[in-house]
Design a protein around this nucleic acid. Structure first.
Lengths: 147, 147
DNA sequence: CCTTGACCTAAAGTAAGGTTGAGGTATTAG
DNA sequence: CTAATACCTCAACCTTACTTTAGGTCAAGG
């Protein structure tokens, strides 16, 4: 009946693996306390926090996005309903923007590849609204620009 | 005025880097011929093929998805309008499915995090339709399941 | 012929998002 | 008290999607 719960319990309740939870800590997404023996002790509210990470991750947000998103939540105090509602609004805006972008892409696809033209100079599909695909090394950024 | 064009020209016309084009070849997405000196010579239609890769990639499709998608295109013959239209239909279906999934997610977000409940046992957000997040090592699959 | 720029291969490096393994310490049930 | 779990750290490895580097070759102009 302790206030603080172990990493194994958090893993079970969130569906995340223990290694992922520890990794998220290195990324600054959770900040568990430690007990006398050095083991991690989480707040119950960290379950919600980590579940949010999982959901956001499934929606295609990067660690960095999620980190920024969670930055406004208090670390040691259990977040209130209002704290979460605020996060949720920002998150929803992002999600709306991504959906809208995919819909625009779909329209363009219909008008462009669909008709077989795919002309190189004037096709908007080749130069979509953002230029995420010209940002240096590594995998290209998926769906929109975090900046 | 040759039929076959060099990798540099392809790069310039698609916006892809030369190294990316060569990489896509190792992934089986293009199959350029070689000239007497061993240099790659592309068909003009490969520009369209590679542009399609770029677009699909920006929409969040993986190499594997794109490979399957392009598998029905002829390698040595210039694809016809009908070839492309067929590809386009399958692609659009996938895109529709992804948009629909994000919209469902958004609704759930509104009903769940938005209200502040986020109850663990009965929240559909914790167990969305697919289980892409339980597929072993590597980065988690983004947005839906390729299988 | 010689130089310059475009091209070649193969191997190693990079970034995100983790997992796996080795070797050791805590906690808990009997 | 002791065995079985659960947890700890740190380093190495994995996948995807490329880029970079090193060391050489090809093609075109002067």
């Amino acid at each position: 009946m302790s206030e603080r719960i172990s990493i194994g319990q958090v893993a079970e309740r969130t569906g995340l693996s223990i290694s992922a939870i520890r990794f998220y800590e290195t990324q600054g997404l959770v900040h568990p306390a430690r007990n006398a023996g050095g083991q991690r002790r989480y707040l119950r509210s960290d379950i919600r926090r980590l579940s949010f990470v999982l959901i956001a991750q499934q929606l295609g947000f990067s660690m960095k996005d999620i980190h920024e998103c969670l930055a406004s939540l208090p670390d040691e105090r259990t977040p209130t309903k209002a704290d979460w509602a605020k996060i949720s609004r920002g998150f929803r805006r992002e999600l709306d923007a991504r959906i809208a972008m995919m819909q625009r892409m779909r329209e363009r696809l219909d008008g462009c590849i669909g008709c077989g033209c795919l002309s190189l100079k004037n096709c908007t599909l080749y130069n979509p609204e953002d230029r995420a695909w010209r940002r240096g090394a590594g995998p290209r950024y998926l769906l929109g620009d975090p900046d």
